[in-house]
Design a protein around this nucleic acid. Sequence first.
DNA 1: CTCAATGCAAATCTTTTGCATGCTA
DNA 2: TAGCATGCAAAAGATTTGCATTGAG
Lengths: 153, 153
Amino acid sequence: MQGGPPWVRGLHGRFRNYGYRLTFPRQAILEAFTKTDKHLSAIDVYGQVHKIYPGIGLTTVYRTLELLAKMGVLFRFEFGDGKTRYELAEGPRGQRHHHHLICVNCGRVIDYTDFIDEEIELLHQIEKGLSKKYNFKITHHQIHFYGLCEECK
Amino acid sequence: MQGGPPWVRGLHGRFRNYGYRLTFPRQAILEAFTKTDKHLSAIDVYGQVHKIYPGIGLTTVYRTLELLAKMGVLFRFEFGDGKTRYELAEGPRGQRHHHHLICVNCGRVIDYTDFIDEEIELLHQIEKGLSKKYNFKITHHQIHFYGLCEECK
DNA sequence: CTCAATGCAAATCTTTTGCATGCTA
DNA sequence: TAGCATGCAAAAGATTTGCATTGAG
């Protein structure tokens, strides 16, 4: 296994550092995330990867998603539909950090990047305080706003 | 069905307004939440209620939790262990709103109320902006900080 | 060549649904 | 009494595990 998109080559070392191998299925799973802005579930990923590599097994998808989350390459989300979803922690083009609006009626999820700067600043201060008080090493955060979307109001 | 803790009597009307009935199982499920500060899963609740009402069915617990969440009496949370958890939206003693610290290693969840005021103020402003921009009616929010707890660091 | 990675099948677990019966208002 | 609520059994889904085989390094 060699070649592939440039950003994938950079992951080789990252995998090795963890004692993991960068195999074709793993690379194909990663690529699925670079082709969408959506929050993909295991089955979503399976569907995508299956198109270019029909031999893929669902089990491998589950194991790889967990692995990538542990490595910090993906973030894990749950929006209330019973499926765990994942997103690239940092997009190939350095996408901006974002938060979510979730419709409690239809389940629609909207990513927003507005106001993020103000949020981030405050959150960083809070992180500092919480880390000290609770002796907790904070790595990331999520903000979810719940309510009714345009359609469901 | 009548009597019970004072705060439960107040719910009678709330149920009626929705066209629902305040039955013994429902009251017992609600009481389980008043006896703990924890985020209870359906099976947690089932276990609690089963002690005082062995006839309870798991299905009823699931249906009641969903109902109470829809009524706004409970909030729904997912912390990554595959179980949906619930918490009283407003405690019987008017507990303060809080946010969560989640250990990605052991799954421990810490509630914190520090910094809440600053957070709330900012979030309210942001809510206003988001509501307008996305034509979204926001009802509540969650902030989760992820990382490693004292034990797991 | 060695050991991690994979895929399949089966097992687990949580949550939902169908339906006959019970109970609240 | 009417219609919501309940409990059981079965179904549906998502995720995990055991194990023999494959393949990356």
